[in-house]
């Protein structure tokens, strides 16, 4: 698979992961990231996925996929057993996001996480002017039929990191085309649509 076919947030993440790393990809879908990283950088690891059709497609493309419900945590994985635990665009759909985040940081030496920023100006405008729950490019579902049950903003997330003693090693704020603009660099919580973070647990 060439990089051009990879979802752009995945392409960005792939630049954060060094060669030969061992990774766990939570909610890996059809395993695109794993497949790409394996070909490009000899990266090993597993994807966790709950949708059986995605599992079938992932197996078809030759990646290691484990059928697992992320809401049940990662108890089957020992501490620090992966170099990176990655989760893209899934945090907001998790029943206990703070718990899963702590599990990711326990199992991985580092974690990489992406989520849609609920404080993007278009959402603020939608809510304040139209008075309805925002529907947008990054959040396309109506409130009553959405997997996104725990939406948060960049500020909220960073506050959680502070409370949970999580160190932010790297951050990228982009739009849905995953481009970095001047606006989302200066006012990330206003202009950023998608937030990407590289994290690790601070020593206590």
């Amino acid at each position: 698979m060439s990089k051009a076919y990879l979802r752009t947030d995945l392409a960005l993440i792939s630049t954060w992961i060094p060669e030969n790393a061992h990774i766990l990809d939570l909610g890996c879908g059809k395993g695109d990231l794993l497949k790409y990283l394996h070909t490009k950088a000899n990266i090993t690891g597993y994807g966790l996925e709950i949708n059986i059709q995605n599992i079938s497609k992932g197996i078809d493309s030759g990646v290691n996929i484990i059928h697992q419900n992320l809401n049940h945590g990662l108890q089957n994985f020992p501490d620090n057993s992966f170099d990176y635990v990655v989760m893209t665009q899934t945090l907001q759909a998790i029943k206990k996001p703070a718990y899963l985040l702590s599990e990711m940081l326990r199992v991985g030496k580092q974690s990489i996480i992406t989520f849609p920023n609920f404080a993007h100006w278009s959402h603020r405008l939608y809510l304040s002017v139209i008075g309805k729950m925002p529907v947008s490019r990054s959040l396309p579902n109506p409130w009553y039929d959405t997997p996104n049950i725990h939406l948060c903003t960049i500020k909220d997330f960073e506050l959680l990191c502070k409370e949970e003693n999580i160190q932010i090693l790297q951050r990228a704020i982009v739009n849905t085309e995953h481009r970095s603009t001047m606006g989302n660099q200066i006012f990330p919580n206003f202009f950023g649509e998608i937030a990407l973070y590289r994290l690790q647990q601070k020593n206590t």
Binding site: H22, Y46, I52, I59, I65
Partner: peptide, 21 residues
């Protein structure tokens, strides 16, 4: 089955697993 899968993962072996409804 997951006992087998987890023991393989602990050894970084190549494994895929699905629980069929």
């Amino acid at each position: 089955s997951t006992e087998i899968v987890n023991a393989l993962i602990a050894n970084r072996k190549q494994v895929s697993y699905a629980e069929i409804t």
